[in-house]
Design a protein around this nucleic acid. Structure first.
Lengths: 290, 290
DNA sequence: GGTCTCATGATTGACGCCGAACGGCTCCTG
DNA sequence: CAGGAGCCGTTCGGCGTCAATCATGAGACC
């Protein structure tokens, strides 16, 4: 393969009209330029330069190489620009994966703030469950993950994780439920109720909490859509454990009541970036957790 | 400036999914690839690769570099193709400069032969006087020159010159001229005639020949167009010295006669290529002078 | 206008030194 | 257990420089 460096030297010679001038432009010595040119000619098998008077000109073979040398110089300059943009956030990409209710409640505002501050960065958002989000991060398909963890499924330890906030799980019941008026609900009092559960992690959390309360929940409905969960509850079809944030994300549903549980339980919202996080990812992380 | 070589290494890593595989593809060792990548990352200031499982993937910064690396690889491949075409005559250019009558008489056939044989080569022809043609050659604007020389203005010595043929100068007179019936003409018998001369070199030759014959020609008309010369002669306005080739190049003009001179004189048609002639120029030269 | 001199560029050869490439090792992961 | 990555120390190639010489226009001066 032809050496790109030498093509660029050929280009300088053509631009300046002499090896000496090219050498000065490249901060090289004259023999060095001559050496590289000779090597290039040897490799090409045809003469590339010719002297006319005291200026060095390219032969037609040299000029046919020149076009490509220019293209390479352009590409290198573009590459340099691109990488600089990645560093100073005047360009590049930021792909975020976050779980549903965080997407709905907490993300839009900082996302807009970031987009205003760094208009050159192309921002992407994937709304996914935490497990899938972490898989995307590991595969390099996203740059930053916002997920949640609890006792049942702790946060990953192999990447940089920062806790953002605690999100309390509330008991959600039909307004007609016998325990509906109590200020706090012991989960054991719901041992015989029919349960409605959300995502994988929430289900694991429910099982852990119920287990601590000494019972195994009867899960009759499974849906990741929190509005559906609340409508089912409003119709008296069951009870559920929902994070505050999920409740805040969905419109008020009449006919249900919510209450803190005893014991209380939380999910911990965390932010994860890989060790080799891009500048954009680090900056956005700083925006969420100053 | 970013090193193009390293961008190509990054490209191979991306294509093969591991540094080891990239090293094999590049016939390098694994540490060497890692070293170059580390250098590139140091220069870029941002991480370019990330490991996911046992495959190495590019970060978004790395992928933005990848596009440019691909462009550079394409350019290098194109450059290699272009130079190969120059060597094997499947491409490239051949620019010829030749004097008028050679263009008209001798050039078309070998030119067509060359174009048929090497259809990829872009052929150009400049019809010019020999002095200008040699200047074009020196400036690198043409690749091959066909010119003529005689005692007055000899062929250049600083470039590779090959004699092609001798072209005899004939005396050209009106059919009504007193000497018109003679088989050969002593130039001295035309000492008192009015002369018509062609180009710079022909005029120099005429002066030299007349000088040898002991007279200075009265030159009343100067034109480089040989048809004009012959028409002027046919009208009885003068006599001239014209090379056989020039006469062959122009249509038969009635009312003129031609005859060899004593002493005979010739112009020598030569072919000149620079030392660093392209393959196309050398090949075409071989066609003209096997 | 011709010649002389000088300045600039190219070339060649020798040489020093940086760093590219390698091998061997350990650690990690699937 | 195998394959890949990271981390050394070592070696050798070749990149770049310096110095000297040659070539060639350009300007000056007569």
């Amino acid at each position: 393969m032809i050496d790109a460096e030498r093509l660029l030297i050929l280009r300088e010679v053509s631009r300046h009209g002499s090896k000496a001038a090219a050498a000065r432009a490249l901060t090289l010595s004259e023999p060095t330029v001559a050496h590289h040119l000779a090597a290039l000619e040897r490799q090409a098998g045809v003469p590339l330069t010719t002297r006319v008077g005291r200026v060095t000109r390219l032969t037609s073979a040299g000029e046919s190489l020149l076009e490509h040398a220019n293209a390479i110089a352009d590409s290198l300059a573009s590459a340099e620009r691109a990488i600089a943009q990645h560093a100073d956030l005047s360009g590049g990409r930021l792909r975020i994966a976050a779980f549903t209710s965080y997407c709905a409640v907490a993300l839009p505002s900082p996302l807009a703030q970031f987009a205003r501050r760094y208009p050159g960065v192309e921002v992407g958002l994937v709304e996914t469950e935490t497990d899938d989000a972490l898989a995307l991060l590991a595969a390099g398909d996203v740059d930053l993950v916002i997920g949640f963890a609890d006792d049942a499924t702790p946060a990953p330890r192999d990447i940089a994780v920062k806790m953002l906030e605690s999100d309390e799980y509330l008991a959600v019941m039909p307004a007609t439920h016998p325990a509906a008026r109590r200020p706090t609900i012991d989960v054991a009092t719901l041992a015989d109720d029919t349960w409605i559960s959300g995502c994988q992690r929430c289900r694991a959390h429910l099982h852990a909490l119920a287990n601590a309360g000494g019972f195994t929940p009867q899960i009759a409905f499974q849906t990741e859509d929190y509005v559906t969960v609340q409508r089912l509850i409003a119709e008296g079809l069951g009870v559920a454990l929902l994070p505050r944030m999920a409740l805040a994300a969905s419109p008020e549903v009449p006919g249900i009541v919510t209450a803190p549980t005893t014991p209380t339980s939380y999910r911990e919202v965390f932010l994860a970036v890989p060790r080799e996080a891009s500048a954009a990812a680090r900056t956005f992380a700083g925006l969420l957790a100053p």
